[in-house]
Design a protein around this nucleic acid. Structure first.
Lengths: 223, 223, 223, 223
DNA sequence: CCATAACCGAGACGGTACGTCGCGTCTTGAT
DNA sequence: ATCAAGACGCGACGTACCGTCTCGGTTATGG
């Protein structure tokens, strides 16, 4: 790999450049290509595994050329990370004040995504490839991983404030307990990601971390 | 990958062939190569990510040739799966009758492995590559994944029998809750896999799935 | 090459447009660019072969931009054809009434050109490129090739009229016999184009196509 | 172009290596590819000009890959030179003792070739490209150009010995006069290469370079 | 004791995909 | 309408490495 080549990175900035600056010198980008590439990645992943993805194949499926793709996102992992973010990056998660409702909603969304969108099957390979690209790894962490995690963390924090969860709770571990089983099953495929999984997971975890008060009320309301 | 190629598989059988058949015609395999290759994989993974592994590089690092490696395990994922199994496949896990001791011991072993052995960093890429090789995937599932999982499952089953865990407990989900956070942190690296993680995870989960009796005794014994 | 592009051609007309139209709207062309580009082509060909010429390089060497060059002559072959015509298109060839003098003068000029001007080394590549551009090929044929050939043809015709060359002579073939060896040697480089070549060629050809009368007189005058 | 790359050249030697050496290490070449590539070049040139040839296109038309082509002949000009040699390199030219018969036969073969084989249209572009590759240029000169020229030169030399051509004749110039018109017309296309051209050219030239004796006999035999 | 046969190394092969170059196009802002 | 500057989409390049295959030599077993 030519480590001195970073010209593409400079160009990438263009797409994210200040939107108010109207004066971009040179021919403007064909904005339809962005969507066509993103769509091609999803479509391809519906039929072939991530390890069979190639930047050339993505470009061909998008009806464009390798340099056009590379100018935007640099590498194949770059393309896939961007696709992942644009497809799954922003998820509206509720924070209604009902801990278990909110958590079940959030985890259900995650579980639904793994059942529905082929893009998720790219995750293992992507994680592997990111190990060789720290810069891109940071983008992935910030704009995909942490973006999603933050909403659930807020739900937990508010529940702690309301006295529904134990004080001094290890928030990060709790977040892991909630989300990890989904990823775990997605990666190893040893058990299905079915519709009830989110609820069962959330209740199991809440049993362990909720206050006695909450558990009493919760049990009462279910009977 | 050439899916029609199975010549290597026939040869692989040789190594696992009936041990009673003493009459193997032809030059016998150099048994030192097996260990040298396994060691080379681990050593390489200590310095480079899985995506930078090549069968050629492994062969060179092991001081042998591509065909010699390929004869044994077919493909690069094959080599890595074998290495993973031979390094981490058989772990002595206790089943002493103390549910939280046994679980903490088991999960600690797992967590130690991720901290210590470079082979674990191959997991995401390996999982990705296995998607294109169902046969090898099955070997991985059986000899690595399920082999480890079975021991923890036994611990849980015995605890249910002893009345320490709730009757009708979803064993598979519980196993996921115990192990998934380790893998999750290893894959995404958002939180460290530190020494206390295993204990905190196990206690959190037991809080949710143990019977009231167990929780009472447990709390008493800790004070 | 994009054969559908003829936008440049419309612009080219401007340069050759009616000279009486004094009112050209917009910024007028920088007329110094024409000469700078022509000069740059010659200079570049002094050091690099035609196959290494690029429109970008020509523009840079001329101290201007790609669009400015393209506006004038469309493509790289267009630029070179124009340069060829402007450098070698109009050659003053004598028609004094002395067949061999005039022919030797004409062919010597051609031979000198090949020895002196780097532009001639563009010919093979140019001829090759013109095969994909019939329009430009016609310009080349008319303004370079036929322009030069016509003067020699006139010399031959007048010599036939004077009874110095055989009646019914195949003029075109004779023209080929006179000029072809120079081009042949220039293209394949198997023999040098030295100073006596033109004279030896002309005399050899005249030996074959002149009348007995002329040959008698010619031999007498040389002794 | 990477000027440091000459690995291919080493490999090319393999194909021309000593035929007796049976021990070539490594996988042997697929010999069908050689013919498929040569055929593809000819076929492509029947429909597109040389400037539209690409190594990639040739490989695709031959049903193989770029590296396989490159391993054999290095570059696109290399492939075309080889094709030229294998198609036109060895021409059986007669040397019967009848100087004009032999020359007409030889030049007719040349003229027929230009009328019939699409490979000849590659010549201008090839000559242009060879200017950047002296090594290949030498192969072309030796195995194509000089190989053909030598047979005609022998005819002329024998005719001189027999006293049919003038003593002290400039053989090289005479060879040029004979062959150049064909190439000249092929390159510039100003006049057709018809069936009688070879005979008219040869007789015109012989008129100029044959001895008076030969001319007397020749004229006598024609009447 | 030799023939058989699978192993070993070495290394060239056919091919996929890579990362890059430079073309020809197009747009901007200013002259 | 031209000028410069420069980014764009794209075709093709030349290379790296893959997985395959063939070789000549080596080393055990079995007739």
């Amino acid at each position: 790999m030519n480590l001195e080549y970073d010209g593409g990175m400079e160009q990438i900035d263009r797409a994210e450049g200040s939107p108010s600056s109207s004066a971009a010198p040179g021919r403007p980008r064909d904005t339809t290509i962005d969507a066509r590439v993103t769509g091609a990645v999803v479509e391809l992943l519906a039929t072939v595994p991530y390890s069979a993805l190639t930047l050339e194949g993505v470009a061909a499926a998008a009806g464009t050329s390798k340099p056009a793709v590379r100018r935007r996102w640099g590498s194949l992992p770059g393309v896939v990370v961007h696709t992942l973010i644009s497809v799954l990056g922003t998820t509206p998660t509720p924070d209604t004040g009902c801990v278990h409702c909110d958590l079940i909603a959030g985890i259900s969304t995650l579980s639904d995504t793994f059942q529905a969108s082929p893009i998720t099957r790219a995750l293992p390979g992507l994680v592997s490839d990111l190990e060789a690209d720290p810069e891109l790894r940071e983008v992935f962490r910030r704009d995909y991983f942490e973006a999603r995690r933050a909403t659930s963390r807020a739900v937990l924090e508010h529940a702690v404030e309301r006295g529904e969860l134990q004080d001094g709770l290890d928030l990060e571990l709790t977040l892991d307990l909630l989300a990890a089983p989904i990823y775990y099953r997605a990666f190893f495929g040893h058990q299905p990601i079915d519709d009830g999984l989110a609820e069962r997971t959330v209740l199991s975890v809440l049993n362990g971390v909720a206050t006695a008060d909450w558990q009493r009320h919760h049990r009462a309301s279910r009977s």
